[in-house]
Each structure stands twice: as structure tokens, then as C-alpha cells.
Computed example of a mutant assay.
Amino acid sequence: MTLAETSIDPGQCPFCGTELASPGAGFMRHVETEPECRDAFETWRDRVTDDMRGGWAG
């Protein structure tokens, strides 16, 4: 890992750092209830959609 890379903790929201109840469903519940994280997630998803063959299924 280079110095510019950061590790990702699946137990934390990547947008605000809040501890999540679970990496999958807990993240989605968090994004649904936190407007700033929801907006950041939507922006991220819009940016990666074209990078994924067949589109984004999530």
C-alpha cells in the first residue's frame, strides 16, 4: 500500500466515519437516514456507474 492509499473499514460509513450496525444492510439504512451520506453515495454511484460493465446493480 502506498502512502496515498487509505484502508477502508467496512464497519464505518466511508462518507462520515460513523460506526455501522453491519457493513451491508447497516450501511444502506445509514445512507437512507443521513441526507449528507445519501447525497455523497448517490454522487459516488453516478460516477462509477459507467465504469462497470452492464451498469450498477446495487
Rank of each mutant, 00 (worst) to 15 (best):
residue 37 C to N: 07
residue 45 R to S: 09
residue 35 P to S: 08
residue 38 R to P: 00
residue 47 R to K: 12
residue 11 G to P: 00
residue 46 D to E: 13
residue 43 T to L: 12
residue 34 E to N: 12
residue 25 A to F: 03
residue 31 V to Q: 03
residue 1 M to H: 07
residue 5 E to C: 15
residue 4 A to R: 15
residue 49 T to V: 01
residue 58 G to P: 02
residue 8 I to Y: 14
residue 17 G to H: 03
residue 47 R to P: 00
residue 18 T to H: 06
residue 5 E to M: 14
residue 13 C to V: 09
residue 33 T to E: 14
residue 27 F to P: 00
residue 51 D to Y: 15
residue 1 M to N: 08
residue 48 V to I: 15
residue 27 F to Q: 01
residue 47 R to C: 03
residue 4 A to W: 10
residue 47 R to M: 07
residue 3 L to T: 13
residue 58 G to D: 13
residue 33 T to M: 15
residue 22 S to N: 05
residue 4 A to P: 01
residue 56 W to M: 07
residue 36 E to H: 08
residue 52 M to S: 01
residue 24 G to E: 10
residue 14 P to S: 04
residue 56 W to S: 00
residue 6 T to C: 12
residue 18 T to V: 13
residue 46 D to A: 12
residue 25 A to G: 09
residue 47 R to E: 12
residue 57 A to P: 08
residue 8 I to G: 15
residue 28 M to F: 08
residue 21 A to P: 03
residue 40 A to G: 06
residue 38 R to V: 00
residue 56 W to Y: 12
residue 27 F to S: 01
residue 26 G to N: 00
residue 40 A to V: 04
residue 35 P to C: 03
residue 34 E to Q: 14
residue 9 D to Y: 03
residue 32 E to T: 09
residue 21 A to V: 11
residue 17 G to L: 08
residue 55 G to V: 04
residue 45 R to M: 10
residue 1 M to A: 09
residue 12 Q to C: 15
residue 42 E to N: 10
residue 36 E to C: 03
residue 6 T to G: 13
residue 35 P to A: 03
residue 43 T to G: 07
residue 8 I to D: 13
residue 7 S to C: 10
residue 19 E to A: 13
residue 30 H to D: 05
residue 14 P to K: 04
residue 47 R to T: 01
residue 52 M to H: 10
residue 10 P to R: 05
residue 49 T to F: 06
residue 10 P to N: 08
residue 31 V to R: 03
residue 35 P to D: 10
residue 39 D to M: 12
residue 10 P to E: 05
residue 58 G to T: 10
residue 47 R to S: 08
residue 25 A to T: 15
residue 36 E to D: 14
residue 11 G to L: 05
residue 11 G to M: 08
residue 27 F to L: 05
residue 40 A to T: 07
residue 45 R to D: 06
residue 19 E to F: 06
residue 33 T to I: 11
residue 11 G to I: 01
residue 11 G to S: 15
residue 58 G to L: 09
residue 50 D to E: 08
residue 23 P to Q: 07
residue 42 E to Y: 07
residue 39 D to L: 13
residue 31 V to H: 02
residue 50 D to C: 02
residue 31 V to K: 02
residue 4 A to C: 09
residue 34 E to G: 03
residue 31 V to T: 11
residue 49 T to D: 15
residue 20 L to D: 07
residue 17 G to T: 14
residue 58 G to W: 10
residue 19 E to N: 11
residue 5 E to K: 13
residue 24 G to C: 01
residue 52 M to W: 12
residue 33 T to R: 13
residue 22 S to R: 02
residue 2 T to M: 04
residue 43 T to I: 04
residue 15 F to L: 01
residue 42 E to P: 00
residue 54 G to W: 14
residue 47 R to I: 00
residue 48 V to Y: 12
residue 37 C to F: 03
residue 41 F to R: 11
residue 53 R to P: 04
residue 19 E to L: 11
residue 40 A to Q: 10
residue 40 A to I: 01
residue 48 V to C: 11
residue 33 T to C: 06
residue 2 T to Y: 02
residue 17 G to N: 08
residue 15 F to I: 01
residue 1 M to V: 04
residue 45 R to L: 10
residue 48 V to F: 09
residue 46 D to L: 05
residue 43 T to R: 11
residue 42 E to S: 05
residue 14 P to R: 04
residue 53 R to S: 14
residue 23 P to E: 09
residue 56 W to Q: 03
residue 28 M to W: 04
